[in-house]
Amino acid sequence: MVFSKIFPSISIVSFLSLWYVLAWFLHSPLLPSPENVAQVFWRHCQSGELPHHLSVTLLRLIMSFTISMLLGCVIGIALGISEKLNAFFDNWLVIFLNVPALVTVILCYVWFGLTESAAILAVVLNKVPNVIVTLREGTRALDKSLLNMAKCYGFTRMKTLRHVILPQLHPFLMSATRSGLALIWKIILMVELLGRSDGMGYQLQLFFQWFDISSILAYTVAFVGVIQLLEFLVLKPLDNLALRWR
């Protein structure tokens, strides 16, 4: 128990130390020290630039994540339940899973213009197939005997969904959520880099043109920090609440 609490802290300190030693050893603008990145981070925060672009990207993340999860869950559960639907759409799913994210983004911008909705659509199209596959497998793994019990005792559909199906799908939902957040933010950066005039991706493109590695790392740290906060403040407590019976 003590180790499980101490080790994560030791791990982060080791990572920062390694970074610091490497930066000190190389002494190159290509790898600025953590101290330098922290200073740049603070400067961007004070100017208001980083909070603005971070919030724009986060808004896009929330919208595309919500749409992807809702669509993916509904379609995934439907495919998991119906063998006929699955037989029909399985090939579509394989195709969409294998289309490179870059292709989807370019096609969305070409077909629908350099608009906000095209950007969101591109992200959703990239993420939905992953959610569908995860939820389809989860639905297939549902305990049939519990479903029979619910049917026999006359549970309504809503009651069955809430008390029998969703608790069983919880690990699959959490897996889709975590992998979704990681995947979506990477795609959003690409979407912003290719066709938006604000957001983290747009800013990173500018920093790349100026070879400003400190700013690239400062923005990365900010985003990773926000995702970690989300993990500790929302996902972990939700997990603990849902799995308290274990």
């Binding site: 005997s145 519990l146 029979n148 019990m149 026999c152 005792y153 008390h163 029998v164 608790p167 849902a242 019976w245």
Partner: peptide, 15 residues
């Protein structure tokens, strides 16, 4: 109203 005692207890583990 039909009560059913299955071969396995069929209890919801999270309740």
């Amino acid at each position: 109203q039909i009560g059913f005692v299955f071969q396995q207890p069929c209890l919801l583990p999270w309740r």
